[in-house]
Every structure is written in C-alpha cells, then in structure tokens.
Design a binder for these strands. Structure first.
Lengths: 106, 106
DNA sequence: ATCGAATTTCGATAATTGTCGAAATTCGAT
DNA sequence: ATCGAATTTCGACAATTATCGAAATTCGAT
C-alpha cells in the first residue's frame, strides 16, 4: 500500500465520530446499517453524518449500497485488513509487534 | 483501549509527514533517530518537524530521550501494538480480517 | 406526475491543523 | 560564564476540516 493511501485511511479513522461510525458498521456485520440508523444511534445532524460517511467511503474503508431510498453502509473489511497489514509491515519492524499480517493474512 | 485514544493515535499517523517520520523511526530500530537526522532526511523546517514530533509523542506513539543537546526519537512499539490490536478487535469483527492481535500478541 | 421519506449537496461559519521564521531554551565544552 | 549546536516555543498566517440548516436529489408508492 502507498503511504499516501494509508495516511488517508488513518486520518479518516482518526476522528472520534468517524471511528464510532466505523465501529457501528463493523458490529452490524454483513447486513450493514442504513445511514438513518447510524444517525439515530449517534444523534448527529444528517448533513454532518453524510459528510463523515463520504470521507470514510472516499478512502475505501466503507461502501454504500442503495436499497430504494435507503443507503446501506458497510465496513469494507479487506480495506481494514490492508491497513492493518500496512501498519504491521511498514510501521512495526520490531519483534515486540505481532509478526502477523505480513503474508499470513490471505 | 479507549476510542478517544485510538482516534488520537490514528489521527497522529494520518498525516503523510508524520507517517513518514514514524516509518523512519521504525526503520531506525532501537537505536532511534535524532531530530536533526529526521530533518535531514525529510528536508522540512526544524519548527515544523518539532511540531509533528510533539504530536506523535503526545499520543504515545513516539518517545524522546535526551543525549546532551541531541534528542533521540524512538518508535514506541507497544503503543503501535496496542493500536493494531484495537483495530483488529474493535474494528474488524469479520472472519476475513486477520484473527490476530486478539490475545495472541503477548 | 405528485408526495413523502431518506439522504446528499450547497454554502456559510467556526474550529482545528499545518507551516515557518524568529526568539528562547538546553546543555556540553571551553 | 560564554559560546555554539540542537531543538523547542512563540506567534502569526494559510489551509484544511468540522458543523449544520436549507435546498436539492433519488426513488418507491399512490
């Protein structure tokens, strides 16, 4: 993974609201979560939420699928996997860090 | 780990310059790298670099040790380990994500 | 072809972050 | 106690990001 991309994903997750959104999506699993549902849970204005979702989507960490007027958001696991792998590979060269995610992830 | 702390660390790494600094430190290993050395490698003004280092230090991802007038920076591996663990645990509940770093990191 | 629900886009403002030179600090050596 | 080297702190400005209401869009149902 390119450093710029990793940084963009890290930055996307590096906002408490967005990290919360992402965690919600992970917990929702394959089913995903409609935007409106996220809004209820986090109690933030629709436009603000939409902005944060957009940011997560732009970096590839989240995907959106339309079901009628409802937009379903889902955590994009392979993207997170890639990010964790990057951190483990590029940013954790020491033995004290879990020697995982180098080649064993597949 | 608390969400707020994880977000702070992710945000710290979510800047290309800081991610670069961090990677440099990882590659430098236990020996660490003096601030001036980082500056040479990245070619950025001292005050700007100092600001970024400070941010990394504040989140616990980097430590600093004084050797005379020189300040040596080091990547704090346990912190990164904790962050990777958080991502794997809290943000990667699916089987497609490496089932690592849950308990096996020790 | 209209309506209402779900969501985004727009636009404006507030808040935070990044950048950098100048001045201040720290500390060993003289 | 002064000097020079390494680095930080300060202060100012630029750039980016966050927030939110209002208006626009999308789409199924009527």
């Amino acid at each position: 993974m390119k450093l710029e991309k990793a940084a963009a994903q890290l930055e996307a997750l590096g906002n408490p609201t967005r990290l919360n959104i992402y965690r919600l999506l992970v917990r929702a699993g394959d089913e995903g979560l409609p935007v409106g549902r996220i809004q209820e849970k986090l109690d933030i204005p629709a436009s603000t939420l939409s902005h944060h979702c957009k940011r997560l989507i732009e970096t590839g960490l989240v995907t959106q699928e339309r079901q009628a007027t409802t937009l379903i958001c889902r955590a994009n696991y392979p993207a997170m996997q890639g990010l964790i792998g990057y951190l483990a590979d590029e940013c954790c060269a020491d033995a004290t860090c879990s020697p995982v995610a180098k080649e064993s992830v597949a």
